[in-house]
Design a protein around this nucleic acid. Structure first.
Lengths: 249, 249
DNA sequence: GCGGCCAGATGGTCTGACCATCGGACCTCG
DNA sequence: CGAGGTCCGATGGTCAGACCATCTGGCCGC
């Protein structure tokens, strides 16, 4: 991180072999950046665009696949108005895939993910406490009600747990943070489920989780920023200590 | 975000058209997840792997391109030990591209990015103040010295500024946060430079920035968490108010 | 022993083709 | 005249085969 890739002691640097698909991505990226292309716009058909760029269809398709993987375009088959590659209007796609893979590769530890969540969630709690709307409180409250179901399955409990945190992030009014958190949550979903499975009695833990969620939401609804942050931190640290304790000793 | 993509009222959901390259990615992802494939491993050659999977080379290549864009594999031409697709050992690749594009598409606002940075940087300052090592302080101090050069160009000043924040994130010991911050910084690099260009006298601003950096580093070096957090927040908010003030009024 | 040279392997790219899918126009029937 | 089904064209999805550029590693000659 202290230097760009392929950097050498002096001003020298490795020559860049620009592949065709990278040039295509560069052009699309530039056109997005200067406003020529905007969210919702439809790209020319693969055949047409490949001709315009003077390249083959496979090369163009590689670029489209990457953009698709990055959540930038949405490609649909078929003719007429629905077919073709469209610049997606919804944000956030791609983060989860990226995080999941990098986590699986061992590039980041569970510890890293949890602490990043603490950083973001703390801020989210603080911000949400400032600007939360009554109807958002109602939505989250309804979520917590559903988590109270005594017959609920662990997987659904976990999903609702995640949903609660995501809704809170939404209430903070920051789309980036909201999507980052949702993606982090997706990335560690399996580990969360495994952690639950390893608990001798997850329903006992659930009781604690429910109470903490209620407490956090109450502080947010009261616009008590400091309390919301404190409770959020405690909530995350409690869960972490239980989870790691259940697995490591 | 409240539901998965393509969800319908009942249990119905849109049929999933699984393309070949997606299946390939799924297989690779699974093998990474269960440890069959690990960082540093080399995948079979394109011809060999496409034969093993019973698909054509172009389809396989689409999967490889996406994985490459996500920073999961590193593909190099040529025969022998150096050629082929290798699972990257270095984390973080792909974040910057993704963030840059999504930002350009207008999915996230500058405001969102700045506030996410505040959330992460605040935590970074707190954590770094706890665990920073003397040599890390020395490294960052040297960076700040280079920023003192009165003849420094705006672009380099900006680069060193980013580098300082990244080093601080490193000192926090969290690779994920560190890479997220570096990527956020990359994503808004152009806007930062434009903001500097719009300043009537950026060198005057630079004086303030230098002082704030020194103050932050001093608090971190003293292991004064609270002070480090406070100063970091002030630093970011100061810069933001100047930047937006210079552009918006 | 050392340097240059050559062969094999690998990725990078292109051409052309065929299939599945979907939208929209058309046509038929009531 | 309207409603329904049908056909056609455009588009993405996939494949096969070929050729080129690049790089490694070993061979050969000096």
């Amino acid at each position: 991180m202290s230097a760009g890739p392929g950097e050498a002691p002096d001003g020298w640097q490795r020559v860049r072999k620009v592949r065709t698909y990278e040039q295509v991505m560069g052009q699309i990226e530039r056109q997005i950046d200067d406003g020529t292309l905007r969210a919702g716009d439809r790209l020319p058909s693969e055949r047409e665009l490949s001709a315009l760029l003077g390249i083959s269809r496979p090369s163009l398709r590689e670029a489209l696949r990457v953009l698709e993987g990055l959540g930038v375009v949405d490609v649909r088959p078929g003719g007429g108005s629905a077919g073709g590659a469209v610049l997606v209007a919804e944000p956030g796609g791609g983060f989860a895939t990226l995080l999941t893979l990098q986590l699986a590769l061992g590039h980041f530890s569970d510890h890293d993910v949890l602490h990043t969540r603490v950083a973001l969630e703390s801020w989210v709690a603080e911000e949400a406490a400032q600007r939360v709307q009554p109807e958002q409180v109602a939505t989250m409250s309804a979520l917590l009600d559903r988590m109270d179901d005594p017959a609920i399955a662990a997987a659904e409990f976990n999903a609702l747990d995640a949903e609660f945190h995501v809704q809170l992030a939404r209430a903070s009014g920051n789309a980036l943070t909201s999507h980052l958190m949702a993606s982090l949550r997706t990335a560690i979903r399996r580990r969360m489920e495994e952690a639950y499975d390893d608990l001798p009695d997850w329903r006992a833990t659930a009781v604690t989780v429910r109470a903490e969620h209620r407490a956090i939401l109450a502080a947010v609804a009261d616009h008590d920023e400091a309390l919301a942050v404190t409770r959020m931190r405690e909530h995350l640290e409690t869960f972490w200590s239980i989870g790691s304790g259940g697995r490591a000793g």
